[in-house]
Amino acid sequence: MKIAIPVDDKSTETSVCQSFGRTPYYLIYDTESKESVFLDNSAAASQGGAGIKAAQTIVDSKVSALLTPRCGENAADVLKAANIKLYKTVNASIQDNIDALNDGKLSLLEDIHPGFHGHGG
């Protein structure tokens, strides 16, 4: 299955980014073929609605699960509508989180935050 993780850099040495919607890149990882692909997050510089746009990118990349430290409610609505599972990352290491997922040790992300919206306009 394909999974997505928000990451700070386009390298396998990178770490998990604290923000889902405004992370610079996503790592798309295939747990069977072990292939890694990095996606630019075009939503990172959005004035508003970054979570929605970022979630659309994740949906379009056809992943089954997202591993993230946190997620806003608009983004979560999009991801849930697409039946993408949300898991909470355990630490900043990409490998630790992938291993934890493979071992069935990642828990589902429950605490969806209301977003950090500016005032827009």
Partner: peptide
């Protein structure tokens, strides 16, 4: 078009 990303297209 939407600069505020208010629309998504899911399934």
């Amino acid at each position: 078009f939407c600069k505020f990303n208010a629309i998504a297209f899911i399934i």
